[in-house]
């Protein structure tokens, strides 16, 4: 194999000599290097462009609302006011606290479900199974990861939401909370269930990577000390893979925060601030995550201030996701450094 490649390289060098000689080559090479740099730089510039662009589009919202945009609620009412406002008196003040909380609670809820299940499955795949079972588990996970979010939304809408409204909600509960919000099947719980399905394959895949990256010597040393296989996994392998798993969890969180279509189909479409004081009804609160807000409220996008508000949702979303990406990066570099030291 190696010899073959060297041969082909040698052949190419000869061709180069015959046709072009040596003079043009360095110029060509530096041009080529420059082109490659340009393409690489374009991708990197893109993120700055996206950020500036949507920030520009929503600037009026941020300058009018200030910090209140993330500390006050009332988005639903403000959209209504903005929609019905006369053209010369537009509403620029928006408070998106309930959207942000809705985003965080659905994603966090999904992580609470998906991380243990995902890590558990990853352990089974890496350490406890072999042969056909391992392959089967791996390909099922890959399939689950590849199912488009709109299909999850469809399943949620046709299966999960009717199940919640039919079996978990009672008229008494609905009556009791009607002054705050209406309990329909569309709820934080439905969002969490659907989101869990969506991010579990991601957690599995990245945990598998992290567990596989744990050096064999660790396991061998532990097993040589007479520690059982399972205890080796829980006491040695998982702690060693911890940072890698954490990076995966953060990536999954980013996916959950950014999911728009599936959540807009199941999570309730009403920007209610969930309150823990409602007890377990907390889970049935209809919530509107930021990404879904862009989808759901786009029917009123003809009003300039509402358009700007939706771009503002995009800005907040982008900041949250960028923060998570940078966190992952930091964790990764910490892991690398530690592995380098050890």
């Amino acid at each position: 194999m190696e010899k073959l490649l060297i041969d082909s390289a040698a052949k190419h060098v000869n061709v180069n000599k015959n046709k072009k000689g040596f003079k043009i080559s360095p110029l060509f090479d530096s041009l080529w290097e420059f082109m490659i740099f340009l393409l690489a730089a374009m991708g990197a510039l893109l993120i700055i462009m996206i950020f500036l662009f949507i920030l520009l589009k929503s600037w009026k919202i941020f300058s009018a609302s200030g910090l209140q945009i993330i500390t006050t609620t009332g988005f639903e009412e403000q959209i209504r006011q903005a929609y019905n406002a006369p053209a010369d008196l537009p509403v620029w003040k928006f408070g998106m606290l309930s959207l942000i909380v809705g985003t965080i609670t659905t994603t966090l809820g999904a992580l609470i479900v998906a991380v243990p299940a995902g890590v558990g499955t990853a352990v089974i795949i890496c350490e406890m199974s072999s042969g056909w079972l391992k392959r089967f588990l791996e390909s099922s996970t890959r399939l689950l990861a590849a199912i488009p979010s709109v299909i999850y939304g469809l399943v949620g809408l046709m299966l999960v939401v009717p199940f919640i409204s039919g079996n978990l909600l009672t008229v008494e509960m609905q009556m009791k909370y009607l002054e705050y919000f209406q309990l329909t099947g569309n709820s934080m719980l439905a969002g969490i269930i659907i989101l869990s399905f969506m991010i579990v394959p991601m957690v599995i895949a990245l945990s598998v990577d992290a567990i596989n990256a744990v050096p064999k010597e660790y396991r061998e040393a532990s097993l040589a000390l007479g520690i059982t296989k399972w205890r080796t996994i829980t006491l040695v392998v998982i702690p060693a893979a911890k940072s890698g798993i954490l990076a995966g969890v953060i990536l999954a969180a980013g996916r959950g925060i950014g999911e728009a279509i599936a959540l807009s189909m199941v999570s309730g479409a009403s920007a209610v601030l969930p309150s823990l004081s409602h007890g377990f009804v907390f889970l049935f609160t209809p919530v509107l995550p930021l990404a879904s807000a862009i989808v759901n409220k786009s029917q009123a996008i003809s009003i300039p201030s509402i358009e700007a508000a939706l771009f503002a949702c995009g800005v907040i979303l982008l900041v949250m996701c960028s923060f998570l990406s940078i966190c992952t990066k930091i964790i990764e570099s910490v892991v690398r450094r530690r592995q380098g030291l050890e």
Binding site: A40, A41, L45, I47, G254, G258, A291, G314, C321
Partner: peptide, 21 residues
């Protein structure tokens, strides 16, 4: 290192944001 971070951040951009952009 900026290029690398930018690509990482780009991978975290929600698709709905790319769409409105």
């Amino acid at each position: 290192s900026y290029l690398k971070i930018a690509i990482d951040v780009l991978s975290g951009v929600p698709t709905i944001v790319i769409a409105i952009f």
